[in-house]
Write a protein that binds this DNA or RNA. Structure first.
Lengths: 228, 228
DNA sequence: GCAAAAGTGTTCCAGATACACCCATGA
DNA sequence: TCATGGGTGTATCTGGAACACTTTTGC
């Protein structure tokens, strides 16, 4: 691909794909195959070509570099963009970030994958050193995920359609990176009005069966300010 | 200016310049002199030319369209960017937004101003219909200002170097768009540890003189999440 | 009966809210 | 003396945090 296919100032798209693996929050990374930052781990991303939207470029880079399609993922509504003269060693750059959530996703396997760059999910607590300012972007995305987790149904995209309260708590503990009190969590979760019982019961082992829950469809997305 | 000076996909910069006028929070707008949205009020903004950073383009558009220099303003540290296929009727666009705060700013008067487009400060409660998605951008910026007001010294940029508690309260009431209890405000403000007394006293009228305060220099910028 | 997850309430504390009067000054 | 903004304290409410035992099932 020659340079004149790309915008100037540099405009790129980067994907932050989260999923839960073994009750840990993980992020999809690739190992860069080109300079700059050759060999360094990075978010999947690429230049946004002239004739594409950032969303189309997102689909392209995920399929080609990781073998995952956005059709397997839940995208968080708005993209965010980062702008800083120091972001890219080649010069001034703006990147559009998409936060995506998945479940049971395995890198590779998409028929249009080429150019795969060793895509892997890393626990967010054990990230390697990242290229560019991707560490900042991951932190931003995780904070955004935290905020949305307490006001919307986004966590549903990380879980099966029906889940027990303890599965749900494990997900929140992974997102917030800390353990939560079972009774307080149940109280708060119910007061947030984000989930409802399905009426079904999970019988899955040598223990008392659990009520199953699911996220409600419509969610408000208001964020709080002080002095409200 | 011909089109090939500009990036593609379209990359623009927009300025949200706040100041207090008569104890109201106001935003700087211009009246568009060109299509699209000819005659509609809008944030000062322009394409980012190939050879400039968004910050340089910001300075350019403010000076040329409003006669104000960023040197008269306090910029909020990070730019934010918005991305949406529907933002611009001409196609896919990304805009970089800068939030800027000023005091006693009058549009016009800069020697390099040309192409002025009737720049005026509008009370945020009485905005006209805006071009593009600028209403969303203003809302975002104001919310950001609210959040930063309770954790940083940004409000200092809207006030004189030393101010009384009631001036400060007026500023917060303008930002939050609601009246606050005098005693509770004082308590909360002091607990936030953002201001300190100068030791000076304001004697400015037929009433008891007031202790003067100033914002501290260094501020933490942590934002809270639930489940912390 | 025992292992393993499900389920359940109360106390405490901190921070937010509501609320009304006296003070110091200049005119 | 009065008009104007400056300055102060308490009671209540609300939401978060800490904390331990009983229940139901499969083996």
């Amino acid at each position: 691909m020659s340079d004149e296919n790309f915008a100037f100032p540099i405009l790129t798209v980067d994907a932050v794909v989260f999923q839960l693996v073994n009750n840990k929050l993980t992020v999809l990374l690739i190992e860069r195959a080109f300079e700059p930052f050759l060999g360094r781990w990075a978010l999947p991303g690429e230049y946004i070509p002239k004739d594409k939207s950032s969303h189309q470029a997102l689909e392209h880079v995920l399929v080609h570099k990781t073998g995952i399609s956005t059709k397997q993922l839940e995208l968080i509504e708005q993209p965010y963009a980062f702008d800083s003269p120091e972001r890219d060693p080649r010069g001034y750059a703006v990147t559009v970030m998409y936060i995506s959530l998945g479940r049971n996703i395995t890198p590779g396997g998409h028929k249009d994958m080429d150019n795969a760059q060793n895509p892997q999910f890393f626990p967010i607590t054990e990230l390697p050193e990242l290229a560019y300012d991707h560490a900042n972007i991951v932190t931003f995305a995780r904070n955004r995920l935290k905020t949305l987790s307490t006001s919307t149904n986004v966590v549903g995209a990380l879980l099966p359609g029906a889940f027990t309260f303890l599965q749900l708590q494990d997900a929140y503990e992974a997102i917030f990176g800390k353990s939560l009190d079972k009774r307080n969590f149940r109280k708060k979760m119910l007061s947030l009005n984000l989930i409802e019982p399905t009426g079904d019961i999970a019988k899955d082992g040598a223990h008392r069966p659990a009520q199953l829950y699911t996220f409600r469809k419509v969610q408000s997305k208001n964020l709080d300010q002080s002095f409200d």
